[in-house]
């Protein structure tokens, strides 16, 4: 089935077509989610929400862009929403801890990678520093950077996903690289 047939079949509720789409785009979606949350468990959770959204909104796909572009767009939005929700949750939690003096921590995964057990187990402080540097990038720079470096998308493809011009993506990527280099250099100086 080609993309058009696949999406038409999903629009009619064809589960076999949906399974085919999931199998085709599973790695793309999971890897993109992982590039934002840096955690396999969360990435799978978000990716499942992405496919549920694809199934429920298949009728909204007009075929004006490539199917993969549409799926990338949903994936990026879901990942960013997840990060925002967890930031809010962490904020409320820290306020609660300050007010009620509890030291319980339900989820600190987005605050400090160095404190996370999986990163401690790997003893990979440098990987943690890299992720923190990526996460510190402004949102649009981070989207462009992640799609380019983790997903190997061209600037043209990123421009389609982000609905920007290619020159805007070039500018975002240039600034992202400069900012990332600055953060990594600061880490490098601290280590030495």
């Amino acid at each position: 089935m080609d993309e058009e047939q696949l999406i038409q079949a999903i629009q009619t509720g064809d589960e076999r077509a949906f399974k085919e789409l999931v199998e085709k785009y599973q790695l793309l979606v999971v890897n993109t989610c992982k590039s934002f949350v840096h955690n396999m468990h969360d990435a799978e959770d978000i990716s499942q929400d992405v496919f549920i959204e694809v199934f429920n909104s298949a009728h909204k796909f007009r075929g004006e862009s490539k199917l993969s572009t549409w799926i990338y767009r949903i994936t990026v939005n879901k990942s960013l929403n997840f990060i925002r929700d967890h930031k809010k949750q962490s904020l409320f939690q820290s306020i609660g801890n300050t007010l009620f003096g509890t030291s319980q921590s339900l989820d600190v995964r987005l605050n400090s990678y160095a404190d996370r057990p999986d990163f401690q187990a790997e003893n990979n402080e440098r990987k943690a520093n890299l992720y923190q540097a990526i996460d510190a990038l402004p949102e649009r720079q981070r989207i462009a950077f992640n799609l380019n470096k983790f997903e190997d998308l061209s600037y043209r493809e990123i421009a389609d996903v982000m609905q920007l011009s290619v020159s805007s993506v070039e500018s975002l990527m240039h600034r992202a690289k400069l900012n990332l280099q600055k953060s990594l250099y600061a880490c490098y100086k601290n280590e030495n």
Partner: peptide
């Protein structure tokens, strides 16, 4: 250091699909 960090990004990618993914979905 930069080269190593960018190599990390490449090594983080999943290369094979999980056969039970659709069942969980």
């Amino acid at each position: 250091r930069l080269n190593e960090d960018f190599a990390t990004i490449q090594s983080e990618k999943l290369v094979s699909a999980d056969p039970f993914y659709y069942t969980r979905l």
